Simulated scan of single mutants.
Amino acid sequence: MNNRIPLSALVLGASGLIPFLWGVASMVAPPPAGIGLEPLGSAYLGAEVIVNWGKVILAFMSGVLWGFATRAQGWRAVLGYAVSVIPAIWVFFMPGDGLAGDALALLAGFVGLLALDWAFAWAGLAPAWWMRLRIGLTAVVAACLLPVVLG
């Protein structure tokens, strides 16, 4: 059983953290005016980019779990497909009132996703290295969401 995270998965997973990290950095030290970011607007800065990107990633992870469900048979496949859509449904119906509320709902969603990741890994449907990757990525995402939650 190879428990080593493939380099491509590690690089792509870490790349997915860039908007989260950029959001926090731009909250702490807003980029100076005149560097060409004005046309992008606030959706690509601070708390807004963290929340917007968090919604994209949480919904995307439903597709990843769906892929794991294809490895199951019978009732386990049915259950796998059913629970794989939970993150996308959570994003769609996500409670939240403003950026702080949305960030709190996303934080809960990513913690719930980690539980689903564990369940797929425990069932032998995810690669052996999956939880090592997901725990690290989720820790960074949670750390980036917390400043938005706390305002």
Rank of each mutant, 00 (worst) to 15 (best):
N3W: 09
R4Q: 13
I5M: 07
P6A: 08
V11A: 15
G13E: 05
A14S: 14
S15E: 00
S15G: 14
G16H: 01
G16A: 14
I18C: 13
F20E: 03
G23H: 05
V24G: 03
S26A: 14
S26T: 15
V28W: 15
A29E: 14
A33Y: 04
G34L: 14
I35G: 00
G36S: 09
L37E: 10
L37G: 06
L37V: 13
L40K: 00
A43N: 10
G46I: 08
E48M: 14
V49L: 10
I50L: 13
N52T: 11
G54H: 05
K55C: 11
K55S: 11
L58T: 02
A59W: 09
A59H: 05
F60Y: 13
M61S: 07
M61E: 09
M61N: 03
L65Y: 08
A69L: 08
A69Q: 04
A69Y: 03
A72D: 05
A72H: 09
A77M: 15
G80S: 09
A82W: 04
V85F: 15
I86Q: 06
I86T: 10
I86C: 12
P87S: 09
A88W: 03
I89F: 15
W90I: 02
F92S: 06
F92M: 13
F93A: 12
P95D: 09
G96N: 04
D97W: 10
D97E: 12
L99D: 00
L99R: 07
A100C: 11
A100G: 08
A100N: 07
G101M: 09
D102I: 08
A103N: 06
L104M: 12
L106M: 08
L106I: 09
L106D: 01
A108S: 09
A108N: 03
G109W: 02
F110M: 07
F110V: 11
F110S: 02
V111S: 04
V111T: 12
L114W: 01
A115C: 12
A115H: 00
A115Q: 06
W118C: 01
W118N: 02
A119H: 03
A121S: 12
W122A: 14
A123Y: 07
G124A: 12
G124C: 11
A128E: 15
A128N: 11
W129Q: 02
M131D: 07
R132A: 10
R134Y: 06
I135C: 10
T138E: 04
A139E: 06
V140R: 01
V141C: 06
A142Y: 08
A143H: 04
A143R: 01
L145V: 06
L145N: 00
L145K: 05
P147K: 10
V149E: 02
L150S: 09
G151M: 14
G151D: 15
